[in-house]
Design a protein around this nucleic acid. Structure first.
Length: 112
DNA sequence: TGCTTGACCGACG
DNA sequence: ACGTCGGCCAAGC
C-alpha cells in the first residue's frame, strides 16, 4: 500500500463516524484524521472511494455549508436529496453548520 | 522539469 | 455577502 492510500483510509475512517442527520466539512474531516490544513486530501479521498464501498460521502460539505459538487450535476442532486432524507434543512442550497455540524468528542487524534 | 488544476479553507478588504 | 490571496499537495500534461 502506498502512503497516499493509507491516508485515504484514515480519511474514510473519519467519514464513517459522521452520524446520520449531521454533516462535516472537508477541513474538519482532514483535521480529525490528523491532517490539519489539508482539506483537499478529503476531497481527493472522496474522489477515490472504491466502487461498492459503503460510506456516507454525502455528509461531507464545504465550509460554506454547500455541496461542492458542480451545481445541477447528478451527484449534486443526489447529495442534497440524501441529506434531506436525513432530515437536514437546506435553504437556498445552503446548510446551517451551526445546527447540523457533527461535533466529535475528540477534536483531533493524538495518536497515529 | 514546470505549470495548471482541483468535490478546499481562513483571513482580509 | 462577495472577490482575492496564499497555503496545501497530488495528478496530469
Amino acid at each position: 500500500m502506498g502512503k497516499l492510500q493509507e491516508d485515504f483510509e484514515k480519511i474514510w475512517a473519519v467519514i464513517r463516524r459522521v452520524p446520520l442527520g449531521r454533516v462535516a466539512t472537508y477541513g474538519q474531516v482532514a483535521a480529525e484524521a490528523g491532517f490539519v490544513k489539508r482539506p483537499r486530501l478529503t476531497a481527493q479521498a472522496l474522489a477515490h472511494v472504491p466502487p461498492g464501498m459503503e460510506i456516507p460521502w454525502h455528509r461531507i460539505i464545504n465550509a460554506q455549508g454547500k455541496s461542492s459538487m458542480p451545481e445541477g450535476s447528478r451527484g449534486n442532486r443526489e447529495q442534497l436529496k440524501r441529506l434531506k432524507n436525513e432530515g437536514i434543512k437546506i435553504v437556498k442550497g445552503k446548510i446551517d453548520l451551526e445546527v447540523y455540524r457533527w461535533r466529535p468528542r475528540s477534536l483531533a487524534p493524538l495518536l497515529d
